[in-house]
Amino acid sequence: MDPTQTLATGSGYWSPLLWLLALVVGLAVALVIRSRGRKDFREGEGRAPFISGNKEPEQGGGHIPASNIYWGFLESMKSYYGRLVPVHTGVPTDYVAWLLGIMALMLIIGLAT
């Protein structure tokens, strides 16, 4: 097994080991940069997070609920979700009807060709 050419994809090769090597190198570079930082950093100073110039909220108050993440994405896709989500009605008869519907569709296609 040649480590440079492990996974044959039909048109090329891809080697995760090389990628791992690259990752390690990148990590080393990062460590080097980190080690060049200020050594005279003192504990207790500048620890407070900088939140748009406001004061840090109470402990735990900085928690962002999951519903707020990707709010903009969801808002922009509202018309799409408005159609998609109501289809998931949760009623078992609808589930069965979808199954039968696909079956009927395939029956038409299958018998027509």
């Binding site: 998931h88 949760g90 009623v91 078992p92 008869t93």
Partner: peptide, 10 residues
Amino acid sequence: NAEKVKKLKG
């Protein structure tokens, strides 16, 4: 009633 048994949806 199947229409009312739908706590799971969406």
